[in-house]
């Protein structure tokens, strides 16, 4: 069953056709990675799904409901959540406050405290909880934002380059986090350039190129596709 379905989605910025009749269906429970060269339209596709951009034409269906006209916050209430490409934490507030703000609409009192503790433990940030989020390392900021995104217990988690700027070890830890979330029933759509991460987590991969779906399949099928190597993986592996 499809959790997210994009139908003939188009987005123009002036004369630039950034998203060109994209059809994409995400199955419940899968980890789906979006890859492609810079400028392929991956982040724009995320912003269309989140309601930050509005499509010129086409439809976005979430759990069977057409959400194309909904505001961003209403889409979040339906069960979407996101971690942005540039870590979008509340830099001037403590790690604990960041998580409290993310959790407070669903939990109160002792339950809220317990949830904060559970998330801090999941993210490995217990000893950093009093630190100002802006002082965390880049990788820790990425994890904190993932924590804020998953605190909403979304049905679909969107991750825009979750391992950007991370060391190989941090990338692997992030992959394990994503796999644990998926094991708990969360569907994941991730934009990623790091092929080690994609190999680690992806059930299916979609390649975007010039705003269109260029190829789709398992990671092995994508890596074996010479056309994909020509436009993207050849550069990524270079």
């Amino acid at each position: 069953m499809s959790l997210l379905e994009l139908r003939k989605l188009n987005k123009h910025f002036g004369g630039l056709h950034v998203t060109n009749s994209v059809d994409l269906a995400l199955q419940v429970g899968e980890i789906h990675c979006l890859i492609g060269p810079n400028g392929a339209g991956k982040s724009t596709l995320f912003r269309l799904i989140l309601g930050e951009h509005h499509p010129g034409s086409g439809d976005i269906l979430f759990a069977g409901e057409n959400i194309t006209a909904l505001k961003s916050f209403a889409r979040i209430h339906r069960g979407l959540s996101v971690k942005f490409q540039v870590p979008g934490v509340f830099k001037g507030l403590s790690v604990r406050q960041n998580l409290e703000i993310a959790l407070q609409s669903r939990h109160r009192g002792a339950e809220l405290e317990a949830e904060i503790g559970r998330l801090l433990s999941f993210l490995g940030l217990q000893s950093e909880q009093a630190q100002i989020a802006g002082n965390l390392s880049h990788g820790q900021k990425q994890w904190l934002e993932i924590g804020m995104a998953v605190s909403l217990k979304p049905r679909l988690l969107l991750l825009d380059e979750p391992t950007a700027g991370m060391s190989p070890e941090e990338t692997h830890v992030t992959g394990e986090m994503v796999q644990r979330l998926n094991a708990d029933g969360m569907t994941v759509l991730a934009i990623e350039h790091d092929m080690a991460f994609v190999r680690q987590v992806a059930h299916r991969v979609t390649v975007l190129h010039l705003g269109q779906v260029f190829a789709q399949g398992s990671i092995d099928e994508i890596v074996a596709d010479e056309r994909v190597a020509a436009i993207y993986l050849g550069q990524a592996h270079a």
């Binding site: 961003s72 916050f73 996101v82 942005f84 507030l93 703000i101 804020m148 995104a149 909403l152």
Partner: peptide, 21 residues
Amino acid sequence: GNVIVAIRENPERAEMLGYDI
């Protein structure tokens, strides 16, 4: 108050936590 401060810090993030900022 938490939400108000969150909007000051990062309105986009606050909205993506489900708040109608």
